[in-house]
Nucleic acid binder design. Sequence first.
DNA 1: ACTAATATGTGAATTTTGTGTCATAAACAA
DNA 2: TTGTTTATGACACAAAATTCACATATTAGT
Lengths: 210, 210
Amino acid sequence: MTNKGQILRLLNYKNLLKHLQSLGFKKVFSDNISDTLEISSSLVRKDFGNFGITGNRKGGYDIDSILSKIDEILGKDEIQRVIIVGVGRIGEALMSYQGFIKEGIQIVAGFDIEPDKTKTDTSVPIYHIDKVSDFIIENKIKICILTVPQMVAKHTVDLLSASGIGGILNFTPIKFQSTSELTINNINIVHELENLIYVVNKQKENQSKT
Amino acid sequence: MTNKGQILRLLNYKNLLKHLQSLGFKKVFSDNISDTLEISSSLVRKDFGNFGITGNRKGGYDIDSILSKIDEILGKDEIQRVIIVGVGRIGEALMSYQGFIKEGIQIVAGFDIEPDKTKTDTSVPIYHIDKVSDFIIENKIKICILTVPQMVAKHTVDLLSASGIGGILNFTPIKFQSTSELTINNINIVHELENLIYVVNKQKENQSKT
DNA sequence: ACTAATATGTGAATTTTGTGTCATAAACAA
DNA sequence: TTGTTTATGACACAAAATTCACATATTAGT
């Protein structure tokens, strides 16, 4: 019933609705949303229907109630504690990224193999990778951001998996498969860029044909 | 004919094939690829077919020729010059990211509004944002990575668009739509993480139901 | 040379995802 | 109250993406 892109769309709805809310709007129509996101209004209504979000015929949808419903769907009642494994440049950048906290996501610790990177006097402590397994178990961590070098990626995933983690957001270039126990979502920045380059070059070719 | 995920799959094929090549393999069968990537072998064959990659019945595909064909498809004959706009933590991390160069992508400059961030004595120079428009035009830059703060995202996209850039890889939380002139691919890290959290929590629920 | 084995290539079938259509409920006006 | 408008919600339809199924080419063994 709920398909792949639906949650990502729901998050887009949320962003837009929060914006409209901040502008003082109280209600919204499916085609207000569909127009700005460039999808069909029936898809918006279908998504809402699938998640049990209802509106009033002629009256549209109440922004406040959609937003609280979305938060409920996403389980925003409790703060999600996330760890970052691999405190290189990208790991470091994500560790201090301000965008997480207002979505109820808290980076609670970083882990790295370099002993001189470990420090516990900062707002987010960085521990040695040896301690990650105990930390996950003791703190019941379910989600991890993986930003280690490619060389140690597989080994690290195995370690995290053995520690019983539930989900990994993987920024390494190695593509990992999910299992029933462990969901791994891969973000390959180089591939995203290569894909963009392909599309842009293709587009240019087609334009010059005209 | 060529569909949305196809190029990203092609890049996955490339990674896998390079790995197999490094292990000394000369040829590969569609189900070798499909097994490791957990897709169907017919999809692999169909992708290959769509891109004009042919194999030998019974004999499989020749790894060397697939790889050179893929590079040809991706236009890897020339180095792609890319700029980064917004040298905050993420921009900085991407600027020194080692993964780009071996895929023929070169980060040629960074741009930021902070005057004390500008420096030209480094391997990749950082200029003031005022100079981005001229730089794009003079150097015929087609692709940009956008890592500015949310507040100035829209304004910056307008600026880049007016300078005639062809593609933006957008890391800001604002979702932008592509036009026929300008392709914008959005990577929303917070959304990716929220999506993962949703899936993992859902999974846990379903497991406890059993 | 003949036969058996096997992996490709491709059209058909299926699944997945998104859109159009329209009856109906709600709101408003007269 | 009655009529008119209008946006939802449900479902049929369409499009896109993926898998199935199998004829065909190619190789290897006897």
